[in-house]
Amino acid sequence: MNCAKAQDMFSAYLENVMEPSQRVAFEQHLATCPSCKASYEKFNAALMMLEEMPQVEPPADFHASVMARVERERRVEPSKVRWWNLDWQHVFTIRVPARAVAMGFAVLLLMVMAVQFTPIGHSINAVVFPGRTVGNPVGDDDSSDAPKAGVLNSGCDLAKSGLCINVSNDSSGKAYTLRLSSKDGNPVDYSVYTRTGTSAKNGVANGFVSRGQQASVTIDVAHDRQTVVTELKWHYRGRSYDRLAFLPPTFDADASAKKIDMSFNKTTVYQALDQVSRSYGIVILASGNLNRTIKFGGVDDGNATDAIYAVADKANMTWQALAASVYEMEPTD
């Protein structure tokens, strides 16, 4: 092996990608040629120095500068297209994504078939009012719309928020299970927090829900005498969603028969719902700003529905019963 050939092999030797016979020849050459040996050592040392170069830190305002530039770009409105400045050539050479169109038709066909072949009364989701569906308990053949005790279903507006929430309590009444599902192709990320009384928010679980999967989060209320307020946050199509579930320490499936006196005065909506949930043993799912203060209100010898009505009336919220002892409240648009 001559010196020029040996020099060409420095990289291969360094990366250890040489044939064994070549390697022996190379090492033999280095052993007998002090100049090549010195040259290889310098080659090696130079690369070592290169790899030891420290990393640099971006300037402190780098992130802010990037985001400011991106914000500016977003605000620049695209120029209006009018018929006289339209790119007509482009209009006639528009390319249609054939595969996407075919997929679209296939999906449409499947949806039509699904509707055709689904027997009425056995569908998993029953429409409660336009735009909102409620999950029926699985295996329940009674398709009447009457709320049922024990299984607590929540609102589920897939088209709007991307996530379905189903709440149930176990037979002992010591724990609730939130079941989250999504029909969207993209995983929906969620976080679950709980809070009792005035205690700080406590992270319970987080993760992703994908189509066809279900995430269950169990909230144990056995040790609490207070309502455990569970906050569920998730993201869907660039928006953040937030829902609170007031889970009472003792669930009473028959709360509509319970008549009690209850009053609130200058409390927040949150505190009022907490109180109603605990007093009647009902689950309340609520969204919107619950930090607003509401004026005097309450019920005398009223049942759970009366109490919910009293809070909703003062807080300017709409409400509905999702099942026995399960209510949903949301701000009036």
Partner: peptide, 9 residues
Amino acid sequence: ITDKQACSW
């Protein structure tokens, strides 16, 4: 991210 179900915090 979790595999299938929610993992504890």
